[in-house]
């Protein structure tokens, strides 16, 4: 197992070089002039006639691509990812400031997504074609076909504008002010965790209340997807010979399902669950916009609309890291579940 992880980790630098090479060649293909724009803070700098050429040479923008690539890679490693127009700060700094919010929402959404989806998927498979199965399938179909912004707005209309239970935003104003006081310790940049660290249960609950609707919106979409995968995988596994073997040796049906079937059925589910993590960490533009949340999705959407390409490139680089790490975790969990993968 350890050897397997080490082997995978050894591949990481190669993958990262590949990914950065692709990302960089995208930047490089913009040409020196476009790149120069991001180095210039005011029109004053271009006043003299040869300023443009001079600056291009100064920043090495007409150097051969490999030279520029290694220079860029060096900067990236040093933490200089360029300047973000959207974040009004360094790209890396802007990302690191917003990512915790996305991560926080992802953590809170992932837990109910996995638990409920697998639970419903297994019930659906075990009660194949019975009422519970039909009901769950309709539930999944609605989640599958309802766009997240429609569902999100619907939730907002019912639970905020009609009932006033779950407000949009990140946290209530009075708590937002409390968090700006000097006595507040910012550790994780995630409101709920920082609230617990600061011993403010009221802020913790308040932040959760603000997250309830985004969580539900995200969860419904992934439930629909994940429970269908669980259901079909479970149905397939339940037909396998080894399930009959387990029954033939007198294993109670409950354990046949919980242990013998579920462990096998989880293999395809893991892929989708992993994809859901990566998807959640990617930030969701609609959910963040509808519920007025700060996060990666909106940051990248703004960057795209402003043609803030260092932010776009930075975001792409950041996500390739997440994707790589995410896939590594998926692969490792595969190996944990399936001995055939572990040993090959």
């Amino acid at each position: 197992m350890t050897a397997y992880i080490i082997r995978r980790l050894l591949l990481l630098p190669i993958i990262i070089i590949g990914v950065t090479l692709i990302i960089f060649s995208m930047v490089w293909s913009l040409g020196p002039d476009r790149l120069l724009a991001s180095y210039i803070k005011s029109p004053e700098a271009l006043k003299t006639p040869d300023a443009e050429e001079r600056l291009i040479r100064k920043y090495g923008l007409d150097d051969p691509m490999p030279v520029q690539y290694f220079k860029w890679l060096g900067n990236v490693v040093k933490g200089d990812w360029g300047y973000s127009m959207v974040g009004k700060d360094g790209v890396l700094q802007s990302i690191l400031q917003r990512f915790p919010y996305t991560l926080e929402l992802a953590i809170y959404a992932f837990i109910p997504i996995i638990i409920v989806a697998i639970w419903l998927g297994v019930i659906s498979a075990v009660k194949h074609n019975q009422f519970a199965d039909q009901f769950i399938r309709v539930f999944a179909l609605i989640g599958w076909s309802l766009p997240d912004f429609v569902f999100g707005l619907l939730l907002l209309w019912i639970f905020y504008s009609k009932l006033g239970w779950f407000p949009p935003g990140m946290v209530s104003t009075q708590f937002d002010l409390a968090m700006r006081e000097s006595s507040w310790h910012t550790v994780t940049h995630m409101i709920t965790f920082d609230a617990l660290i600061n011993g403010r249960l009221d802020i913790f609950v308040d932040a959760l209340r603000h997250m309830a609707l985004p969580i539900l919106t995200l969860a419904y979409l992934w439930w629909a997807y994940l429970l269908r995968i669980t259901r079909s995988s479970m149905l397939e596994v339940l037909r396998k010979d080894y399930i009959r073997t387990a029954r033939a040796k007198g294993v109670p049906e409950r354990i046949v399902i919980k242990k013998h079937a579920k462990k096998n059925a989880m293999i395809p589910v893991l892929t989708v669950a992993g994809a859901s993590v990566i998807g959640l960490l990617g930030g969701t533009v609609f959910v963040e916009t509808i519920f007025s949340r700060t996060g990666m999705g909106r940051f990248l959407a703004d960057a795209a609309s402003l043609l803030d390409y260092w932010s776009i490139i930075g975001g792409a680089l950041f996500y390739s890291f997440i994707l790589i790490i995410g896939n590594l975790i998926i692969d490792v969990s595969y190996a944990l579940v399936d001995p055939r993968i572990r040993l090959n």
Binding site: D241, T245, G250
Partner: peptide
């Protein structure tokens, strides 16, 4: 369930698929 595997046992045609791949 107490009789199956205890008083009555069964072996199947395909030893490849009759054993659960994820358990020793």
């Amino acid at each position: 369930m107490k009789i199956r595997g205890n008083d009555m046992a069964m072996i199947f045609q395909e030893p490849m698929t009759a054993l659960n791949p994820v358990f020793t």
